[in-house]
């Protein structure tokens, strides 16, 4: 089982990956995030903000790197072609999947999707500065 806090420097409430389901560094990562009622930040609106879905994908992309990111942070440098298809609510089990499209000059472009029970919730390309 992948040691998530051992790999990512993020901590509660901003650690947004619960479990790694499949991981091939440099090739693909599939992770899982369970949404709970206490963890949605907007008062009176129990939805996960779309920006946090992108952050979930970015954190998942951190597991494409073979080594821990402690002391060698990755940075989100750009977002392209982001689509948000449906709201994410408490109780949702999110599947986060990322795969690199290419890399050059210390930057990597990653295609990511968030699905819930087989339905696509969000898709986006992220540009990340590699450690």
């Amino acid at each position: 089982m992948t040691d998530i806090p051992g790999h990512l420097p993020h901590r509660h409430p901003f650690l947004l990956v619960d479990r790694i389901l499949a991981r091939e560094p440099g090739v693909r990562v599939v992770a899982e995030k369970l949404v709970t009622a206490g963890a949605t930040p907007l008062p009176g609106r129990p939805v996960v903000p779309d920006t946090l879905l992108l952050e979930m994908l970015a954190q998942t992309a951190g597991f494409l790197e073979a080594d821990t990111l402690h002391g060698r942070a990755m940075f989100l440098a750009g977002i392209q072609d982001a689509r948000f298809e449906a709201p994410v609510l408490p109780g949702d089990r999110l599947r986060l999947e990322v795969a690199p499209e290419g890399a050059f000059g210390g930057l990597m472009k990653v295609r990511g999707t968030v699905t819930c029970e087989g339905r696509e919730i969000c898709g986006a390309s992220l540009m990340v500065k590699r450690p």
Partner: peptide, 13 residues
Amino acid sequence: DSIDALELVLGIE
């Protein structure tokens, strides 16, 4: 910039 460079590398391929 560097992000454009990555985009061009992917486009050229």
